[in-house]
Design a protein around this nucleic acid. Structure first.
Lengths: 159, 159
DNA sequence: CTTGAGTCTCTAGTTACTACAGACTTTACC
DNA sequence: GGTAAAGTCTGTAGTAACTAGAGACTCAAG
């Protein structure tokens, strides 16, 4: 639409960024994207600032930052005074999270692979995988979250 | 409570399995745990079958199986005819998912580590991490989900 | 018999979206 | 200019896997 000036309708912005229309509106509600101008008929009109900001969001999300972390990063990016150190803190914490998740997943992978392998050549009625699942839950508690860390909800039935 | 016979109140079952009381009730609503008997006053009373089943659930969840996959595994475990092969299919698909997640996370980790490292010794106002986030989103699309695979919601802002 | 811990149901919150329904706006074509 | 198709609007509700709270009730111990 509106080819004049740099304004984009939401669909065009969607195509440029690969971000779904509903998701863009969601980001607006979530206060990640600033409220755009509107056409006389009420359509959202985005400028290049929105494009840049949405690109940032997409990229950060692709790197696994949560919405809340993205908000933090924006704050740090917007106030242009010495962001580097503080950004490094946020990103460093996230990096540790990612590494912890990798470790967890690798442990899972190992158990799965071993059990599936035992399964593979078995032909009897008692499946080693099923048997394994019926065994006591390993405590595995001693795996201190690398920081006073609130996240990590995905992988663990922890606690 | 009720020390006679093998029955456990929900709190006792919770302690035995390390699964929160609310989660146990949630599993009942989700039809993962069979509906237990009740005391005259309406308290849930669990037997050893419930204990075993809940142990199974916890263990499978700890290995990253979804609730729905756990349901499938139960089905296969319950009908005791040649489960091994079919179980292997379910577990194998899950294993592939886990491996794909690991690959994604490792890619994230690499980018994060590199950028944070650049950050670390920087002292100027333009933070390399922030700059990196403002760059175009890499397409990275060509990463076919190893199966007609519906899951994989966590890591990607895919599509 | 009272007290306090345990349990009950029901509802709503979380995260990051996604998917409608039903109405309205814009654009494209004739 | 008129009409049809495509785009967009708001609002609500759904997803996964729990978690948290309110307010009422039960149970076991002293």
């Amino acid at each position: 639409m509106n080819a004049t000036s740099g304004t984009l309708a939401i669909g065009a912005l969607s195509k440029r960024t690969g971000c779904k229309v509903e998701t863009i509106r969601y980001y607006e509600r979530a206060r990640l994207l600033p409220i755009p101008a509107r056409s006389p008929g009420g359509y959202r009109l985005y400028g290049s600032a929105h494009l840049k900001r949405l690109t940032f969001i997409r990229r950060a999300r692709a790197l696994g930052f949560s919405i809340d972390e993205v908000r933090k990063l924006f704050k740090l990016a917007d106030e242009r005074t010495r962001p580097c150190a503080e950004v490094r803190v946020v990103a460093g914490a996230h990096l540790e999270d990612v590494q912890a998740k990798i470790a967890d997943l690798r442990a899972m992978e190992r158990v799965l692979r071993e059990t599936v392998a035992q399964c593979a050549n078995g032909r009897r009625a008692d499946c080693p995988l099923i048997e394994a699942l019926y065994r006591e839950v390993p405590e595995q508690a001693s795996h201190q979250p690398s920081a006073p860390n609130r996240r990590r909800k995905i992988l663990k039935a922890d606690q």
